[in-house]
Simulated scan of single mutants.
Amino acid sequence: MTEPALKTAMLADAALAKSSQLLTSSALANTAAAAPNSGTPTLTIVEPKAGASFAIDPTPAMPKIDCRAQIVGIAPDPTPTTAFDWLIDINEPLKRGTCPSAGVLCGHAESAVGVLGGRWRPSLVKFCGGATRIRVTTTVGGVRLEAETQVMILGENPHRSQIHPMLGGVTTDIARIACRESGMTQFENGFPKLGPGGDTGIMQLCDPAATCDQRWNWRANVQAGIALFNQDKQAALKHLNQHKIDGRWPNNKGMKNDQVLQREAIKRYNAGVNKAYWTWDETKQMWMAKPPGDYTDLVLAASCP
């Protein structure tokens, strides 16, 4: 039979041992929960997905591209408290051609430094599209991490009903020019519509060369075409006023003044100042339609309702 004093001592030792075991298990559990994963961290771009396409809409407006990066392979996740450096780089492929427009190289880069939390939306204040590279870098535990993805920015064509008001309606000379030149189309397969020589967009701007804004912003393209045609009308007027008789421009087609001026201006939009529609014949004392003006006839027959 065990003595009472000895039994009491044995119970006390057992309780102490059990208490120590519980304390040790609890401490180990807390330590394990607090210790970070010792794995190698990597950086990935979660958004946007590789190969995604974004649209310059018919407003026109550049797209909103939400970028999100994530650090993986380490716990707890340090992404929310980490600073990231971002870069977006947009480039339109250059197409060779005889037009000055074909030599315009369009690109836009935008960066941000020390953006906290792994999220970023570039402002994209300039109109530009094409192959788009997104890159993000950061440093974790003295290790530099980086990730990169590729997406596309493409243009969407406006509806003709959006274009007509800028051109003064459907049947104006400049509207017929836009119809003949491009079918009132700014983009083809998401890229600026190009003619054989590199003429660009709705108004097929050639010389002066279309700017990057005029390549990717259809409104800027149309405005440039209108301005160019107004210059052509002034040049046509100056040309015809060299020979005016009794307030008229006598001509071999028996046309009225407004028709004479109309054809001279339209021809100049396509051919420039060196290829006039009307040539003065000193012997006959009248303007002769030379060359015949096939482009002008095609424009006047064009319609894009």
Rank of each mutant, 00 (worst) to 15 (best):
140 V>N: 07
162 Q>Y: 09
176 R>Q: 15
171 T>M: 12
139 T>P: 10
163 I>S: 02
153 I>R: 04
149 T>D: 05
170 V>H: 04
164 H>T: 13
167 L>F: 08
189 N>L: 09
163 I>V: 15
134 I>F: 09
192 P>F: 01
176 R>G: 02
186 Q>F: 01
201 G>T: 03
154 L>Y: 09
147 A>L: 03
144 R>S: 15
142 G>R: 13
179 C>A: 14
150 Q>V: 13
186 Q>W: 00
180 R>K: 15
180 R>H: 14
177 I>S: 02
186 Q>D: 00
167 L>E: 01
183 G>K: 07
177 I>E: 00
182 S>C: 04
163 I>E: 00
161 S>D: 15
183 G>Y: 05
148 E>D: 13
168 G>D: 05
141 G>H: 12
191 F>L: 14
164 H>Q: 14
157 N>S: 08
166 M>F: 13
137 T>L: 04
147 A>D: 11
176 R>F: 03
163 I>M: 09
180 R>L: 07
164 H>L: 14
180 R>M: 09
159 H>L: 14
185 T>H: 03
191 F>E: 06
141 G>I: 12
173 D>K: 05
188 E>I: 06
193 K>Q: 04
193 K>Y: 05
169 G>E: 07
176 R>L: 04
190 G>N: 07
201 G>P: 06
198 G>A: 01
179 C>H: 01
196 P>S: 13
151 V>H: 04
151 V>W: 03
187 F>D: 00
147 A>K: 08
166 M>C: 05
181 E>Q: 10
168 G>W: 09
154 L>E: 04
154 L>Q: 12
141 G>W: 10
139 T>R: 15
153 I>S: 00
140 V>W: 11
172 T>V: 09
162 Q>L: 12
200 T>M: 00
168 G>N: 10
165 P>A: 02
197 G>L: 02
144 R>N: 14
148 E>Y: 02
196 P>Y: 08
159 H>A: 14
150 Q>F: 10
175 A>M: 10
161 S>M: 12
181 E>P: 06
175 A>V: 11
178 A>V: 09
